[in-house]
Design a protein around this nucleic acid. Structure first.
Length: 150
DNA sequence: GCCAACGTTGGC
DNA sequence: GCCAACGTTGGC
């Protein structure tokens, strides 16, 4: 079992939205590295749900991978913000996985706190300078450390 | 294949 | 709203 961190802007889709719908296809990822990570996901993998581009960015909940990767339908939808004219149904370019809600944390574990955790979180992709990936792996030790901060 | 220009991400 | 960092595009 592997662990991941997935970012979402709460104005677009928050942990409360995930709680409400229960299950969500993680559409709109248009970065090859992030896509490749989703291809490596398996049902049951743990997901840290992270709120980005907001007043207090940080980890706000736990979700779980609920499907293997499959083609992101929005790449074919001309009216979608995520439409990709170079993608075809024969050769889709983008994949996604479904994620299901597990729980909301009792409080946000802010990016600031994660940075302050020091060497325990050394190597965490989220904390790498200039990191912009919206989907990234988290190792088991980091996963444990982050959730222990709650 | 290089790289400048451009667009996007996301913290601050 | 600013801007650093980064990815992508496209001319050459």
């Amino acid at each position: 079992m592997k662990y991941w961190l997935m970012k979402s802007e709460p104005e677009a889709f928050s942990i409360d939205d995930l709680e409400r719908v229960g299950r969500e296809p993680w559409s709109g990822v248009r970065n090859y590295l992030a896509r490749n990570f989703m291809r490596q996901m398996a049902v049951g993998d743990g997901v840290l749900f992270y709120h980005s581009n907001t007043k207090v960015p940080g980890v706000v909940g736990v979700a779980e991978v609920a499907s293997d990767a499959y083609p992101d339908p929005t790449q074919f939808q001309k009216k979608s913000d995520y439409y990709d004219p170079k993608a075809t149904r024969e050769e889709p370019r983008w994949q996604l996985v479904d994620v299901i809600f597990k729980r909301k944390l009792s409080r946000i574990i802010s990016l600031e706190e994660l940075r302050a955790a020091g060497e325990q979180l050394d190597g965490l992709e989220l904390l790498r300078r200039g990191s912009r990936l919206s989907v990234m792996p988290v190792n088991a030790a980091h996963w444990k450390t982050i959730l222990s901060l709650e």
